[in-house]
Amino acid sequence: MSQDDDALHERLKAYEGKSAGEGGRGPDPVNDPMIRHWCEALGHPAPPDGSAPATMLQVWTMAGYNGPTGRSENYLEMFRLLDEAGCTSIVATDCEQEYLRPLRPGDELVYDSVIETVSPRKTTKLGSGHFITTRMELRVGDETVGTHRFRVFKYAPAKARKSSEEAATKAKRPRPVVNRDNAGFWEGVADRKLLFQRCDGCRTARFPWLPGCNSCGSQEWTAEEASGDGTVYSYVVMHHPPFPAFDPPYAVGLIELAEGVRMICNVVGVPYDKVRIGMPVRLEFAEVEDDLVLPVFRAEEAV
């Protein structure tokens, strides 16, 4: 999270606990025609007692065609702040309602609402922005008839953001971590060879690279080139969090080589959701970035 994000969140947090609208009035009393239209459009059975369906609650508070009215200055101000920060889109994410008694034609609703919480900046598939939770209490006269907690995500759309990010330098993959103990492996990769170690003492094949053998403790070993045949021993499909250098969802495999050792690698030539345990794969080398060659494994079956 950047400092700017923090500063914006601080300003947004100041609205927590403030009114989002007091003494709002439903534009129409609860009425048969609106109930009928709603039931018709949604295919909802009409309640036999002539009351309004409970899940229609919020409808009675909606401002309708001419846009929001009855919103407090606080609420509008907070939305202006978000708009200015590029969070111009909005989507509802959660709704919790309690219905204390059925609403009947003739009931005239009044409502108060309060801004409960504003989240720190969050990034979702839609984009990056803030979750805003408001809670509304609905009354008929002095009687509370329902409560309504509503969460929306007010965000800057991902597509608009991406283009600005792409203009900047493309993020790079994490580099291999190389030291004296495993440099031989990466030298092999540079020559398009996949090298594992074999213990000179007990002949055990070894990967990852280490200076000595876990089976017998011998410090003598020889590098051997893998045949390149392997199978998927296990795999993960990465969805979250997003890393700029990768494009989720993507699959990461644990490949068992024909020689019996395993290594983490990407599986290519097959969609991320078609990778399976036991799938035969074949070694290739890919220049994934200008200065980064990695071994990858291509799925052998046509899927």
């Binding site: 059975p45 036999p48 899940t55 919020q58």
Partner: peptide, 22 residues
Amino acid sequence: NGLVGRYVAECLGPGTQVWAVK
């Protein structure tokens, strides 16, 4: 939200009172 209400009404009968929905 209304369709969730419809599902419950159709499964449990239209006279079912809904107290809360999350």
